[in-house]
């Protein structure tokens, strides 16, 4: 598949009073044309920061490492001036955020805000054309009574409806890549369900690529084709969606999956959990970031960061236990093989 976005060795650091927070510590990935890639991780894993780094929507204290490279459709983004970047933002790459309320201006009618988005990149459109396009977009994202709602203000919209407006805005200029940063986290399950369905149909209609960032493996399973699992600022595992769920290639992924109770699960036993807390990124662990919480951790895990091991097409994972010389005893990957 042809890649629309290639990220190479991305490192992003925040300078704070208590030291430099190494939020993203060198990640590389690709997004194919028309592909939906999920980035899964806990809070503090660096998943949001990596997506923000692509469009450089970072606070002033953030620094992107010089060796990082972000190539979008053949164009290197890291060296662009803010002005050049603005040409890409919203037109070719657009974003949807977790909190739609703070992304919308409370004083301007929503229809107007979507129009603005269109006008920035299409100055030639007349008022009537703009209006028609906005109506069409509202129809696409299934906002009922679009004529009436155009003139309403964000506070008159429910959370789900606001997120639809955000999606309409993001799709306004027919972007090639849509970055959705936990767009459903603040919503209720029933609304999340509606939004996910919508995103799926919209993606099929427009053919845009989507990077979908979430902490919920369930959401990823419903939407994405390929998944990156992030922890401690690193990509722990990358896999096509079916392979990941059938045969997780990293102890962290295993732990994550086990801690979601299935609706048919026996409830007499304890829920499998991952003990401990995520690492402090001002002082990231020297070895594998998951080692202190990993049930299979060896001495080497705490001492050195493991290299990636390819587990097939589009599949790689970072774990010492995947090395050929790793012992079979208490090794989750060997048991699989034996079975």
């Amino acid at each position: 598949m042809e890649a629309i976005l290639t990220v190479n060795n991305l490192k992003t650091t925040f300078l704070t009073g208590s030291g430099a927070v190494q939020a993203v510590r060198g990640i590389s990935f690709q997004v194919g044309k028309g592909e939906i890639v999920g980035i899964v991780g806990e809070s503090g894993s660096g998943k949001s920061v990596s997506s923000m780094s692509i469009l450089r929507l970072l606070p002033g204290t953030a620094r992107i490492d010089r060796e990082s490279s972000i190539v979008f459709d053949g164009q290197e983004l890291t060296g662009l001036t803010p002005k050049q970047l603005r040409q890409i933002r919203g037109k070719r790459i657009s974003m949807i955020f977790q909190d739609p309320m703070s992304s919308l201006n409370p004083l301007i009618p929503v229809g107007k805000q979507v129009e603005e988005m269109l006008k920035i990149h299409h100055k030639e459109l007349t008022r009537e054309q703009l209006r028609r396009q906005v109506l069409e977009l509202f129809g696409q994202v299934r906002i009922p009574e679009p004529e009436k709602r155009l003139k309403e203000f964000p506070h008159q919209f429910s959370g789900g409806m606001r997120q639809r407006v955000m999606i309409a805005m993001a799709l306004a200029n027919k972007p090639d890549l849509l970055i959705a940063d936990e767009p459903t986290t603040a919503l209720d399950v029933t609304i999340q369900d509606q939004i996910l369905k919508q995103l799926r149909t919209l993606q099929q209609e427009s053919g845009a690529s989507i990077i979908f960032i979430t902490h919920d493996l369930g959401v990823v399973a419903e939407l994405c084709q390929r998944v990156l699992v992030m922890y401690g600022g690193l990509i722990m595992e990358e896999a096509p969606i079916d392979d990941l769920f059938e045969n997780p290639g990293h102890p962290y992924t295993m732990g994550l999956m086990a801690s979601i109770p299935a609706l048919n699960q026996d409830k007499t036993g304890r829920l499998p959990s991952i003990p401990g807390s995520p690492p402090d990124m001002t002082n990231p662990p020297q070895g594998c970031p998951f080692a202190p919480r990993c049930p299979y951790a060896r001495k080497i895990c705490a001492a050195q960061c493991p290299p990636y091991v390819s587990l097939g097409e589009n599949r790689r994972s970072m774990c010492w236990l995947l090395q050929p010389d790793a012992p079979a005893e208490n090794n989750p990957f060997r048991k699989e093989a034996a079975r």
Binding site: G276, S277, P292, R293, R298, K299, C301, A303
Partner: peptide
Amino acid sequence: KWEMLEQTSESR
């Protein structure tokens, strides 16, 4: 290097 890593509540 393949010895199990000792993990304590403190380290986690």
